[in-house]
Amino acid sequence: MSSLVIHDLHVSIGDKPIVKGLSLTVNSGEVHAIMGPNGTGKSTLAKVIAGHPDYTVTGGDVLLDGRSVLAQEADERARAGLFLAFQYPSEIPGVSIANFLRAAVQARLPEGEEIDATAYYKRLYAKMDLLKIDRKFTSRAVNEGFSGGEKKRCEILQMAMLEPKMAVMDETDSGLDIDALRIVSDGVNALRGPGLGVLMITHYQRLLNHIVPDFVHVMYDGRIVKSGDKSLALDLESRGYDWVKQELAALPA
């Protein structure tokens, strides 16, 4: 049983505060969705959890299984069980998916232990079959010349291979047509289970038709302002974010 605890987190880029006291707990087996208008700090939150060096945490904490990850480099956090599915995955020319994933798997082995190549490929092909990905995919350079859907599927394949405890999925639905969205969602659903906690960040409700969340949170101006179950997402879909903003404005300061 794992937990990702975000406690009163404050984040700035330069001098500009972006995340302003956000708290949230994700446990294994749960799927949480964070929704919110653009510019509210959702992607910043995702990158900060993963350890992007451009952001400064000015207060609060992020804990994986009770241990703060804030002092750790991005690679240490990933090896501890965190995974970020990128909104805009980088293209890595000249590095094949097979070699890239191999390096990632190798990095999880004890010092001096070499990866078992046969077992690695067996597992890789099994995961690709599970996600219905063509085997020719592995020899292509990571994300280079990929369509939006291929990039996102590649993210899901990485997640399947690395078997994280907690996955943060940043706008996984962006840039996908309806078919690609279904394929990617099927992939995430195939990986759902008691050993995995998921924090999905999305602007639109449509992703949540395919990956049904256990909890929905509304993020606005750097904080979570409302939490509920999946019906909250449907309310947002029909009523828009202005409804939340008005409700907030009506609250005593």
Partner: peptide, 11 residues
């Protein structure tokens, strides 16, 4: 690119 690889656990 470096962050992307690090985010996969690669030092």
């Amino acid at each position: 690119q470096e962050f992307y690889l690090q985010a996969r656990g690669i030092p």
